[in-house]
């Protein structure tokens, strides 16, 4: 494996991102030291490369990446992995609002708690939260899956259109167009295969405690299909 370490100290996000994009052509693994919660890190990286952020990242870390894998050895601010199309963003600490906002694919993992509106307008892909998730998780979600191992706050699945939110802990309240279902065997199998992959080793009995938030209607705003304009 070809690995290189770079230092973000005294550099702008644009300089750091440019350097990483150049290095990604020749290296498999890039370690970024002294990130100091900088915003916009690793924006738009489309190489199959692993980037380790050795500390916390600010807003929009990994926005619009494709195929890149990012590991953050700290916390992340608002909107980590925003609009990602493929790849992986793993946050070892906590994260702010809008985790995985609008993603089209790939996987986002946050080990601890996250803020509000997790997975808002996501179209596909997977978001796993090791802790709890805040207000309006899955807002206007249009596909994919969100898995919350802690509690989920008020208005979960607000205006959800497609996709599913799996919750192990308490569901504070549901949003408009959201309903709760029990998991079927396929759901449990899917979670049992997925979660250990990211280091979440749950007892078998825990998988029986998950509940699933799904849409009540696929057309909650515009009525019947015949009314489509």
């Amino acid at each position: 494996m070809r690995e290189i370490e770079i230092d973000a100290q005294s550099k702008t996000p644009r300089e750091v991102n440019h350097e990483i994009k150049e290095l990604a052509k020749d290296y498999d693994r890039i370690i970024l030291k002294n990130p100091n919660a900088m915003h916009y890190l690793i924006a738009g990286l489309t190489e199959e490369v692993e980037v380790v952020i050795d500390g916390s990242a600010g807003y929009f870390v990994g926005t619009m990446i494709h195929e890149a894998k990012i590991k953050i050895n700290g916390n992340a601010g608002w909107f980590p992995a925003d609009n990602m199309t493929a790849g992986e963003v793993i946050v070892e600490g906590s994260a702010g609002d809008g985790v995985g906002q609008g993603i089209y694919g790939g996987t986002v993992v946050v080990r601890k708690d996250v803020g509000s509106r997790t997975g808002e307008i996501m179209k596909n892909g997977t978001i796993i939260v090791g802790g709890s998730s805040g207000f309006m998780t899955g807002l206007f979600m249009m596909g994919g899956r969100i898995i919350i191992l802690g509690d989920i706050a008020e208005d979960a699945g607000e205006s959800i259109i497609r996709g599913a939110i799996y919750v192990l802990g308490e569901i504070k309240s549901l949003g408009k167009n959201a309903k709760v279902e029990e998991l079927d065997q396929d759901d449990k199998k899917e979670l049992k295969e997925l979660l250990p992959t990211y280091g979440f080793d749950l007892d078998d009995s825990k998988y029986d405690q998950f509940r699933k938030i799904v849409p009540r209607s696929k057309r909650p705003f515009y009525g019947q299909e015949s009314e489509e304009g």
Partner: peptide, 20 residues
């Protein structure tokens, strides 16, 4: 407003989001 500010006065391994 942001973690980058907290980092100036303490170790921020445990940052809490203020909820709505």
């Amino acid at each position: 407003s942001e973690e980058v500010s907290l980092r100036e006065v303490m170790d921020t391994s445990n940052v809490e989001q203020i909820s709505p």
